Amino acid sequence: MQIHHTIAPLRATLAARAQPRVLVPTMGNLHEGHLALIRQAKALGGTTVASIFVNRLQFLPHEDFATYPRTLQEDCAKLQAEGCDIVFAPDEQTLYPDPQTFRIQPDPALADILEGHFRPGFFTGVCTVVMKLLQIVQPSHAVFGQKDYQQLEIIRRMVQQFAMPVQIIATPIQRASDGLALSSRNQYLDASARQQATQLHAELVRTAQLVQQGRRDWSALQTEAMQRLTIQGWQPDYLTVREQRSLQEPPADGALPPLVVLGAARIGTARLIDNLEFDFGRP
């Protein structure tokens, strides 16, 4: 496995490697969820490239950019064990040698709701760094996890609208045995919060079941789910039913498209997100 910290040597190495070229963008502090992305990338054949970069542009001023865990040595050991071919781990000066005044502004209808409402500017930062990584690596495929559901849909739309020659591959959420979605931020959970953390996924399942039973009062469903979480000590931002592709509220009557329940809530010092896709009648 080769490790590159700057762009020119990375491009020289890539020029000599086999296609397809598959990119797995990460912010490091890798766990089993990330390694599942690497395995899916490896299954496509060719050359697997994992990027590790904590992107300042997608953190709000009060968020954990300074303290976000940076574990490059351990990450590289895990990637090598999975057979990753290349790691691209630039510093900020390499990726942003000048102030990044040109930025990708995603469609507000998709990006200013849900996560974008509570983290304004987040998806501009995500799209900007992903666009830059795609331009640097020029992969034929890029692999993303479904836990960041809204991010995945926005990146798909960005790639489509810019006619970029890359196929976006989605990998299902990886969960602990008790249902908790794996996340780098799970390490912020103390013992008590870790025991409670499965409640978020349980509320997603419960809401999907209520829809299956005929509920269509979307606002009331969200209010009830958030109230249940609040009673259990959470600080929920949202827990809502949306159409999978548009992330808009479903119709109140008639046939339902494929749906997804999305939730974000804070327990202790950790803010967790999760989602559950389902087709009507098959949660």
Rank of each mutant, 00 (worst) to 15 (best):
T6D: 05
L182Q: 15
V137M: 14
Q174I: 15
V205Y: 12
L276K: 09
A181D: 07
P25F: 01
Q212F: 08
G281K: 07
V211C: 05
H5Y: 10
D190A: 05
T48F: 10
D190L: 10
R17W: 03
Q58G: 03
A193M: 04
L44D: 11
F118G: 14
T67M: 05
L272H: 06
K147H: 06
G145N: 02
Q160C: 12
G145C: 01
L57C: 05
P250N: 14
G83Q: 02
E32T: 11
A18G: 03
L60P: 06
R242V: 12
G121M: 00
M164P: 11
N29A: 15
T67N: 13
H34L: 11
L262Y: 00
W218I: 03
Q209D: 13
T240N: 05
A50I: 07
L239W: 04
L133C: 03
A66Q: 11
A16L: 14
A81G: 09
R21Q: 04
L134T: 02
C84K: 06
T124M: 13
T230Y: 06
A43S: 15
P90M: 01
L259V: 05
A163S: 12
Q174D: 10
H31K: 09
A176M: 14
H34S: 00
E92V: 10
T240W: 13
A191Q: 10
T71L: 13
Q167K: 14
R266D: 13
E63V: 11
D274V: 06
R103P: 01
E82C: 08
P250C: 03
F122K: 12
D75C: 09
P20G: 08
G268S: 10
Y96Q: 00
Q100L: 00
A12N: 10
Q227V: 05
